[in-house]
Amino acid sequence: MLRVRGLTVGYGGEPVIDGVDLDLEAGRFASLIGPSGSGKTSILRVVTSLMQPLHGSVELDLDARDIGFLFQDDALLPWRTVRQNVTLGLKIRDVAFGDADTQADDWLTRLGLEGFGDRYPGQLSGGQRKRVAIAQVLALSPKLLLMDEPFAALDAIVRTRITQDLLDWVEREQLTVLLVTHDLEEAISVSDEVHVLSQGPRATIRARHTIDIPRPRNVLKVRRHPDFGPLLQTLWDELAGEVAEEGIAT
């Protein structure tokens, strides 16, 4: 579904990532982990054309409209109601107004925000805003979902609940997902494969791991799976090695 070849991305001609190859098959959940500044976000930005690469190519087996991008922050349009924010993408796609509203309300109900349609984002909590952002993206029925540390700003409980809700949906709909995170446990809990980026600048993929923990998964119980501990240790060592090589910390 997604083929990245020799991707080099940088700012001001200086590569942040250099020659990254990445393949993502349909229906797989992949995570991209790496130290801060390793250019994880840049890869997602290139895939969604928010950014142009210096070199390399991105091939997609789908239309750009079938990509959903869940950002790190939950910037919703503050002057639009929750419902209007959710219908935004639908209306851009010319879904009739009444249909869009019905679909938006269905999504809000599904995400536990029934009756919140007429509120403004400023009236919601961080977790609720994140759910609206998820509804905004999922309402467009994306085939490929890109996520850039979407839950980083949430507290542990809210984060676990939203992650589980999203994971349930992804498993049911067999969505293809590329998640950028620096939370190793999160990466193992939700993914089929984890790609480890080296320390930037000129970061590249250093290791790839397949995670064969059966689905459906429970993000809390999955930590008790026998594979979880050793995988976490391996990822930890790889990342710590990266940071140590840079001479910052161990």
């Binding site: 928010l50 990509i67 959903g68 910037a75 919703l76 349009l77 935004l88 993408g89 905004q136 467009l140």
Partner: peptide
């Protein structure tokens, strides 16, 4: 917000 609109198409 600008990028949000762009990624929504």
């Amino acid at each position: 917000l600008v990028e949000r609109i762009q990624t929504l198409g």
